[in-house]
Design a protein around this nucleic acid. Structure first.
Lengths: 157, 157
DNA sequence: GTACATTGTGGGGAGAAGTGGGGAATAGTG
DNA sequence: CACTATTCCCCACTTCTCCCCACAATGTAC
């Protein structure tokens, strides 16, 4: 199954709508039917999961113990900022204002295909993230991660 | 299965299109059906994977944990600069402008068959890379890499 | 050598994608 | 209940991508 890839910069209009990139649309699983879940990422960006991939995330979440302090904390703070949304007839998504503000997205949004999910960044936050990653350190990290078999972690999403 | 080999120099036209070398075309797996993924290389060149080879790369990527910091950094920075593309009816590929600029490719592109993938270089960057590799150091490196059995690393792509 | 096929190179334009606005329908508030 | 705010639907325009065409150069077969 093809995964999301590429970087696309689009305008966010006055109503908070932004076009979902046509090339990313081609990588959507037909079962997902343009239904997504959008939430805060671990960096200052948003994570956009199509429905079929979000189901794996929920499966993982449901295996967490809701009665442990750690489990409750993770579930609460992961899910409280999540929202379901769908593409409109012009293939745009409405960015909820609380998520847009949190990620610092104003007039421009950058979509980054990252395998099973899509990240949505503001140009400023992305530039900061990029500035903190040198080519040398990326190269080392790449070689380390790509040559590391680590079969135990293979279902992490 | 035959692998890509050889070096071919072609013109890039004003629309960013460049002919895919006919001899490399003969080494394509018919299953790939002229579908490719193009991305930034680790050196200042582009990597072009036919679909069937890219699938192995994606398989490796999907085994990386998207919730670990290292995992998500690698996925983001590897996939954000990747794009799917297909040959047109004249067997040309459209080089996306962001990749073309990054690799310093202007009016001429050099294709280098490198086994399971193809590298695309600008003449200037290739000349620099060549200048920094003396025949002696290449010879040593060659003997070291080719005489090192290391079967664990053989799936790296 | 010639004739034909294949490969490489460049241009025009139709259709897809991106962008923005108005107004109807729905949800929220007092 | 009435009023306001938000969401959703539809439309229109601009820009970009991709399809098609044509010609020149090179390779292959006879």
């Amino acid at each position: 199954m093809p995964s999301f890839k590429g970087e696309y910069e689009h305008s966010v209009d006055a109503k908070g709508r932004v076009a979902f990139p046509a090339k990313l649309r081609k990588s959507l699983n037909p079962d997902a039917q343009e239904n997504f879940t959008l939430l805060r990422g671990l960096e200052p960006c948003l994570y956009l999961y199509p429905k079929n991939e979000w189901e794996f995330v929920e499966e993982k979440l449901s295996s967490i113990n809701s009665f442990s302090r750690q489990g409750r904390t993770v579930k609460r703070n992961f899910l409280r900022y999540a929202e379901d949304l769908t593409l409109d007839k012009q293939n745009r998504i409405p960015l909820p204002s609380h998520l847009k503000e949190w990620a610092g997205i104003e007039e421009t949004a950058i979509f980054i295909g990252s395998g099973e999910r899509i990240e949505i960044w503001s140009p400023e936050q992305l530039a900061e993230e990029d500035a903190s990653l040198s080519h040398e350190s990326y190269q080392e990290l790449f070689e380390q991660v790509m040559s590391d078999p680590r079969p135990e972690d293979e279902n992490g999403r």
